[in-house]
């Protein structure tokens, strides 16, 4: 009986990184989008609506890339 511990570890690592990354990216994007409605402070400085939109766009694009790769894995 052979248990592939290495592959199990890979599964754990990949799903941890990918899952947490998507959630964090969407969360950051929503922080950025919030700046369009109300002032959001990041560290000591505020985020302007324009910066917020840019941050949101970048984060959502990165999340979309991961989701796209997920779709590719399903189809391929």
């Amino acid at each position: 009986m052979h248990i592939a511990w290495g592959a199990l570890g890979t599964v754990a690592l990949v799903s941890l990184v990918a899952g947490v990354a998507v959630i964090a990216l969407v969360a950051f994007a929503l922080v950025g989008l919030s700046a369009r409605n109300q002032p959001v402070t990041v560290g000591r400085r505020g985020m302007s609506p324009a910066t917020g939109t840019a941050v949101a766009g970048l984060c959502l694009a990165a999340a979309a890339l991961i989701v796209g790769y997920g779709l590719y894995v399903i189809v391929a």
Partner: peptide, 26 residues
């Protein structure tokens, strides 16, 4: 575990953001 860490980060990151935007966005 992935969901737990993700949820924790999600709430921490959006703690000071606009509630309405966050709820609708998620």
């Amino acid at each position: 575990l992935v969901a737990l860490i993700g949820t924790w980060i999600g709430y921490r990151a959006t703690a000071r953001a606009d509630r309405g935007t966050v709820t609708k966005g998620f």
